[in-house]
Simulated assay, not measured.
Amino acid sequence: MKMIFAIVRKEDEGFVIERLNKEKISVTKLSSTGGFLRKGNATLMIGTEDEQVDTVLQIIKEECSRRQEVMMNPAYSAGTKGPVMGYAAPPVTIEVGGATVFIVNVEQFIKL
Results as ranks from 00 to 15, higher is better:
10 K>C: 03
46 I>Y: 05
49 E>F: 11
23 E>Q: 10
96 V>L: 02
77 S>M: 14
104 V>S: 14
24 K>V: 08
108 Q>D: 15
59 I>H: 06
99 A>V: 02
32 S>I: 06
83 P>R: 14
42 A>G: 07
94 I>Y: 04
98 G>Y: 04
102 F>V: 10
8 V>Y: 05
84 V>R: 12
33 T>K: 12
64 C>S: 07
90 P>M: 09
37 L>T: 10
45 M>S: 05
32 S>F: 00
7 I>S: 09
64 C>K: 06
54 D>P: 10
9 R>N: 12
44 L>D: 04
72 M>W: 08
55 T>A: 14
29 K>S: 15
28 T>L: 08
33 T>M: 10
92 V>T: 11
54 D>N: 15
12 D>Q: 02
90 P>G: 08
80 T>H: 10
60 I>D: 02
51 E>D: 15
4 I>F: 04
70 V>L: 13
99 A>W: 01
61 K>H: 14
34 G>A: 03
58 Q>M: 09
53 V>R: 04
44 L>W: 03
9 R>Y: 05
86 G>A: 06
107 E>M: 09
46 I>T: 13
51 E>V: 14
104 V>Y: 13
92 V>M: 10
24 K>D: 13
47 G>W: 06
14 G>V: 03
76 Y>F: 15
108 Q>V: 13
100 T>Q: 12
77 S>P: 02
38 R>C: 04
18 E>Q: 07
95 E>F: 00
100 T>W: 11
93 T>Q: 08
79 G>D: 00
12 D>A: 01
68 Q>C: 06
25 I>D: 01
46 I>D: 07
77 S>V: 12
71 M>T: 10
108 Q>T: 13
97 G>K: 01
62 E>F: 02
13 E>H: 07
6 A>E: 02
20 L>I: 01
10 K>L: 06
31 S>D: 12
44 L>I: 05
19 R>S: 13
71 M>D: 00
104 V>Q: 12
76 Y>P: 03
86 G>L: 07
52 Q>S: 15
87 Y>E: 10
86 G>Y: 05
49 E>W: 06
56 V>L: 01
98 G>C: 07
96 V>D: 00
83 P>S: 12
10 K>F: 08
109 F>H: 14
98 G>W: 02
22 K>T: 06
25 I>L: 02
106 V>G: 03
4 I>P: 03
64 C>G: 07
50 D>C: 10
74 P>E: 04
55 T>W: 11
99 A>H: 00
57 L>P: 12
66 R>A: 12
65 S>D: 13
73 N>F: 14
107 E>L: 11
33 T>V: 11
22 K>P: 04
7 I>V: 14
27 V>D: 01
110 I>H: 05
90 P>E: 13
16 V>Y: 01
108 Q>M: 14
101 V>A: 08
101 V>P: 10
16 V>W: 00
88 A>N: 09
